[in-house]
Amino acid sequence: MARIIVITSGKGGVGKTTTSAALAMGLAQKGHRTAVVDFDVGLRNLDLIMGCERRVVYDFVNVINEEANLNQALIRDRRCDSLYVLPASQTRDKQALTKEGVGKVLDELSESFDYIVCDSPAGIEHGATMAMYFADDAVVVTNPEVSSVRDSDRMLGILASKSRRAETDVEPIHEYLLLTRYSPERVANGEMLSVADVQEILSLDLLGVIPESKSVLSASNAGVPVILDTESDAGQAYGDIVARYLGEEIPQRFLDMEKKGFFSRLFRG
């Protein structure tokens, strides 16, 4: 029986796909059989971030419509044996993801995987609600910025009411906060909401903080999940997050500015 994790946010462009790719790769590297599923029907992107866009033959909707079986559609990652990608369809019919169809595919994936990471589209439309409906855990990706925080709060409301767990009255979805594009310098200058501010507003368990980093763009340029860039701050931050998700006690990093000496403070611009 797999654990189903939805990566969600409400607002677009906050780092859902980057996070889905990194978390899935991280879980797989730890030896867990992991499938990462792109729910963004119409605008598929996960395959690009994972670097397998040229290997897409069949997609999620083909499997739902029984035009292909799951094994034909799943793409095995070339860097990690226990990681598979299920790409989204480019069909414009958003209703192609039926609740029955998605449920059936996730059930079948559940038989052979330990974790299923669902990369949600932005918004609160059909694709987003389908991505979260079957979830056991939710990672709410948030930027320290007003519209993103507000949208995250709205997603929490939807997670609490429109999910399988809510409807069947079992233990609710475990929700985690992941703060991305964080800039400790700007927080120190009072220009950006701090982790503590966002946590206070959303009252969520903090899974971690990803610092604003050039490595995220260069990783996506190359089609490499940023977690594989272990030299980079963002890569290391995602590494921490995977370990923390799996229950390890890892202290939070990347919350503070690099310590500057007295003289560099005295003479800075």
Binding site: E145, V146, V187, G190, E191, M192, L193, S194, I201
Partner: peptide, 9 residues
């Protein structure tokens, strides 16, 4: 401006 953002939120 962060404190303004927090209050509004």
């Amino acid at each position: 401006s962060a404190s303004v953002a927090k209050e509004r939120l």
